[in-house]
Design a protein around this nucleic acid. Structure first.
Length: 330
DNA sequence: AATCTCAGCAACCGCGATCCT
DNA sequence: AAGGATCGCGGTTGCTGAGAT
């Protein structure tokens, strides 16, 4: 009965991943696609648990992962989605396809949570009515004190609904060309990730004068999305003689990998598909409402305008996409 | 210069849901 | 149908580097 264990607990390696392990993992996924984690350790000889392999792939090596600084818009989205969904990091990450749930979770725990706390304290002092106080209200909605009157509660609930809609609108503005144009240069395929990783690794191993970077440090080479390397600047590669990207490409065949990985993405990227489906629905709504300006543009203009956050928009966006008309979205 | 403290992040752990035999 | 393995997710830990003292 049942399945065979994916890996023995004994002899399983833990801790930071080495570039060699990353390469093995990437090459395996290139051949078999992501998902077959069970067989991965035995087939590749990696002394890693399948769980660890999956985590490494999804959080680090997967193509299309954006690393480094979060943009203001991403930050806003996270705040709003967190207020809406709670600590459902996977769900939140589905609206930020370039970010991993782990990344978002870390960003929230290390930075945003504190920021929200501070703002919360400020709100209590000044009783402000801005976005953050609203979000904090939402965050604490479930645990709001019992003395809250029904009217107050209803107002808060209404605000909650509005916030939910806003968050969704924000999510829909993901494909804003303005945003994507500023971020595409920081996107890296796993091939590039590995290449950069190798660069750091080789640099530390070949040159004793170089800083003795650990695998973590070399990993950080990926984390810090250096624009020069991300936009295809070959300077970094040329330092090491033969371009590491070339070396890696010759190792695994970049073209085939990229095409296969993009196929994988298109097959597995259900959140994007969902977003697409939602957008189709929105377009229908758009036609029904006979809106001349694309909805995404309206949403974008409204959402990116900080000042409008406190003001009820002229054409109330919460009514633009009717809650009742699109119940499936909520 | 040495030590301490804090922040950031990758990875691990535990648990519930799902899948497989 | 049952039992156990795997998957996926959220919480937590531990390591490392940077800044403060």
């Amino acid at each position: 009965m049942g399945r065979v264990p994916c890996c023995d607990k004994v002899g399983v390696k833990k801790g930071p991943w080495t570039p060699e392990e990353d390469i093995i993992l990437v090459s395996y996924v290139q051949q078999h696609g992501p998902g077959n984690w069970r067989a991965l350790p035995t087939k590749t000889g990696l002394h890693r648990c399948s769980k660890s392999c999956r985590l490494r792939w999804t959080n680090y090596l997967r193509p299309g992962i954006k690393r480094g600084n979060f943009t203001d818009q991403e930050e806003k989205m996270i705040i709003q989605l967190q207020a809406l969904l709670g600590n459902k990091w996977a769900a939140i990450a589905s609206y930020l396809p370039e970010r991993t749930d782990n990344d978002i979770k870390n960003y929230w725990n290390t930075y945003l949570k504190k920021k929200m706390k501070k703002l919360d304290q400020l709100d209590q002092c000044h009783g402000s009515n801005d976005l953050f106080s609203l979000e904090n209200g939402l965050t604490h909605l479930s645990s709001s004190n019992s003395s809250t009157s029904r009217g107050q509660w209803e107002r808060t609930l209404q605000a909650d609904i509005n916030m939910a809609k806003k968050a969704l609108h924000n999510a829909l503005s993901l494909e804003n060309p303005q945003v994507s144009s500023t971020t595409t240069t920081t996107y890296a395929s796993s091939t590039e990730n590995i290449a950069r990783l190798l660069q750091g690794w080789m640099g530390s191993s070949t040159s004793s004068t170089n800083n003795s970077e650990s695998s973590k440090t070399s990993s950080n080479n990926i984390a810090t999305t250096d624009s020069s390397s991300c936009d295809g600047n070959p300077n970094a590669e040329s330092k090491g003689g033969m371009g590491l990207m070339e070396a890696f490409e010759s190792l695994f065949g970049l073209e085939s990998f990229e095409s296969s990985s993009s196929d994988e993405l298109s097959q597995t990227a259900t959140p994007e598909a969902e977003t697409e489906a939602i957008k189709i629905e929105i377009k229908k709504e758009e036609n029904e409402h006979d809106v001349e300006v694309p909805l995404s543009v309206i949403l974008e203009n409204w959402l990116l305008d900080e000042n409008t956050l406190n003001i009820q928009p002229k054409n109330d966006l919460t009514t633009l996409i009717s809650f009742d008309q699109t119940p499936h979205l909520f």
